[in-house]
């Protein structure tokens, strides 16, 4: 009976451990994609093959700029500094390799600007424009200069018109941000 309980507890603990999601940390000049179904070695090979010739990649990192982690089901892309991230192209290539992109994670830094109803963030390094949809953590003000880690639902880019800004949710404000500015909404 005691053994059964210990085994059951161990099984439960292992299930909790398996179900536990590791926080995503995006390093400088990287983007991370959470991918459904990315659990096998040939998945990793297929995704690697599909993405490794993207122009924006820094091949000095991970051997070819792509790192697939089947334990977390994430693909990390090392980017050349100052490159815009071709989210739609990445989405299409992962999908063509047989898997379903779920969430993009990225870093961006720059001044928040209010344009009409929208709060916009232009990345000062790449010039890539993002529309800020929401904040997971602290509210930010228009005019603030921020360094943030953000994410968005990958499905969004599949139908996004060319050149249109993706709508990001700011997950973390990183050090080096200046929070002064007008209060947003």
């Amino acid at each position: 009976m005691k053994t059964t309980m210990v085994v059951a507890a161990a099984l439960l603990a292992s299930q909790v451990a398996l179900g536990e999601e590791l926080p995503v940390v995006v390093e400088e000049n990287q983007t991370v994609v959470q991918v459904n179904g990315m659990v096998c070695s040939f998945c990793a090979y297929g995704a690697d093959k599909a993405l490794s010739d993207l122009d924006c990649l820094d091949a000095a990192d991970f051997g070819n700029g792509v790192f697939v982690d089947i334990d977390t089901h994430r693909i990390t892309l090392a980017l050349r500094p100052g490159e815009k991230i071709p989210f739609r192209e990445i989405y299409k290539r992962i999908e063509k390799s047989g898997y379903d992109p779920l969430t993009f994670y990225l870093r961006a830094e720059g001044r928040l600007e209010r344009v009409g109803e929208k709060l916009l963030l232009t990345d000062s390094k790449s010039g890539q424009l993002f529309s800020v949809a929401a904040f997971d953590s602290v509210p930010l003000a228009a005019g603030a200069v921020v360094r943030v880690q953000a994410h968005f639902d990958a499905e969004q880019v599949s139908e996004l018109p060319e050149g249109e800004a993706v709508e990001i949710t700011i997950g973390r404000v990183l050090s080096g941000s200046s929070m002064t500015g007008q209060k947003s909404g």
Binding site: F42, G46, K96
Partner: peptide
């Protein structure tokens, strides 16, 4: 361990 290529055009 689906060992066949899943990607389009794979062989």
């Amino acid at each position: 361990m689906d060992m066949a290529p899943r990607w389009d055009g794979g062989w």
